[in-house]
């Protein structure tokens, strides 16, 4: 140990794997590093949205009647449809991962295309909702107007427009950041589609599909929480 503190370990790998980067010893190490990296990245995303969920919680506790009145002005049918769209896209993503692991290239390409289409459907519906809010002057800012909107379950009482503006500010920031994540996701899946089209992925190497899928599922999970929090407040009243 004194004279040569560093022992030589094994020999260099004989078969050159083009997907294996120089600083990794084996493909498993590279795959595990990428997967762990994505999981930690998702943990940071949890905290990123966490700040918003915290703000939401505070103001929902303080201004519950206004939150209910504002939620009523959203169309829960569109929200529910979008939830279903995202759930279907999560299915196509997980099928894509399966197809890649089974070397089913056609199925892989079809699933990736389906995912991208479903992503656009989601954004289209979201765009329609944004458009409606814009027309109704429910977008926070100088043009915001929320006069004489009744509080559900309290006949004769009207929502305080300032407090309503806080709800809509949170609504647009939360759904807007979610939509930005969707757009990034569509970008990632377009890249994956091009690579899959070029047959870059094999059952031995499909890490990008796996970690891209993790990201997509995470964005889906965020929406799974946003839907009841933003749309389904006092719907029964």
């Amino acid at each position: 140990m004194a004279d040569s503190p560093i022992a030589v370990q094994g020999t260099s790998h004989q078969v050159h794997n083009p997907a294996l980067l120089h600083h990794f010893a084996q493909p498993e190490q590279q795959r595990n590093a990428a997967s762990l990296g994505m999981w930690w990245f998702l943990a940071t995303e949890v905290m990123f949205f966490g700040g918003l969920f915290c703000s939401y919680l505070v103001y929902r506790l303080l201004y519950y009647p206004e939150f209910a009145a504002c939620a009523k002005t959203l169309d829960w049918r569109l929200g529910a449809t979008n939830t279903a769209v995202l759930i279907c896209s999560s299915l196509t993503v997980v099928l894509a991962v399966w197809a890649a692991s089974m070397a089913r290239r056609t199925l892989l390409v079809v699933c990736l295309i389906a995912t991208i289409i479903l992503g656009f459907v989601f954004l289209g519906i979201k765009g329609k909702e944004y458009h409606d809010k814009f027309v109704e002057h429910h977008v926070p800012g100088p043009t915001f107007s929320f006069e004489k909107v009744p509080i559900p379950g309290h006949p004769g009482e009207y929502a305080n427009p300032q407090r309503a503006q806080i709800y809509f500010a949170l609504y647009f920031i939360m759904t807007g950041l979610h939509a930005i994540h969707m757009i990034i996701g569509i970008g990632i899946f377009t890249y994956l589609l091009i690579m899959a089209w070029k047959s870059r992925y094999t059952p031995k190497y499909y890490t990008p599909i796996e970690i891209g899928g993790l990201y997509w599922h995470f964005v889906d999970i965020i929406w799974i929480y946003l839907f009841p929090l933003l749309y389904l407040i006092d719907l029964h009243k």
Binding site: V58, L62, Q162, Q165
Partner: peptide, 14 residues
């Protein structure tokens, strides 16, 4: 930029 009121006590924020 938009004076949303999230942090502005004048607009109901905390």
């Amino acid at each position: 930029t938009l004076h949303l009121g999230i942090f502005d006590p004048k607009l109901g924020g905390d």
